[in-house]
Amino acid sequence: MRQISPIFKREFVGYFRSPVAYVFLIVFLLSSVLLAFFAGGFFRGRVATLESYFYFHPWLFLFLVPAAGMRLWSEEKRSGTVELLFTLPITTLEAVIGKFLAAWAFLALAILMSFPMPITLAYLGAPDWGVIISGYAGSILMGGAYLGVCSLMSALTKNQVISFVLSVFICVILVLLGTSMFSGFMTGFLGMPVAFADAIANFSYLTHFDAFTKGVIDPKDVLFFFSLMGFTLFLNVVALER
């Protein structure tokens, strides 16, 4: 595991060697903040919370996380640098973890760049910092769980477009499973038992993110996000070693 740190460092700094990082950070910040203001009614609510900001994250991540993760392995495969990487004395697991952590740290940075919002809140009112911190924690954890899917998809192909489209597709499914529309469809239209619909909804990002935005950090939710990351990264190693 000693080799994770140089891989991490190269990958993380690598984001800033190209304009990709700056475009991504700005687009992420603008779209998340604008959604909170115009669609979420950030100021209209007259309550000092970031709920309207975090509310859109699962939908925003649907496109932005695959955009950040699509190049992780596809790019290495296309340019032939995988051959260089995997003839250096590192294991596949170290490479997968190193690259994943770098992308995750980058994503966390994008999320945390909205810090002027809670500061504004503190200036205007008296926000509940516990709720804000749990919202950020949930968002970052959920981002990692999206990214695991994207990293896996990008290991399957050397084409970044395919990698992006597949990631969006899987993430859309993992979001929709948790919508009330979908569970209504399951229980009403298909006549499934409510317990079954709930069990399915358990596999959704939405279901596990909700409590975080209300200030509740449930170990079950934390475990879900970490399990999804672990599972996708395990498959990622398998996909690269095949």
């Binding site: 690598g14 190209s18 340019s79 032939g80 640098t81 051959e83 260089l84």
Partner: peptide, 11 residues
């Protein structure tokens, strides 16, 4: 040294 010497282009 792999064929066509791959390296990370932006570094």
């Amino acid at each position: 040294l792999p064929e066509s010497a791959p390296a990370y282009p932006e570094m």
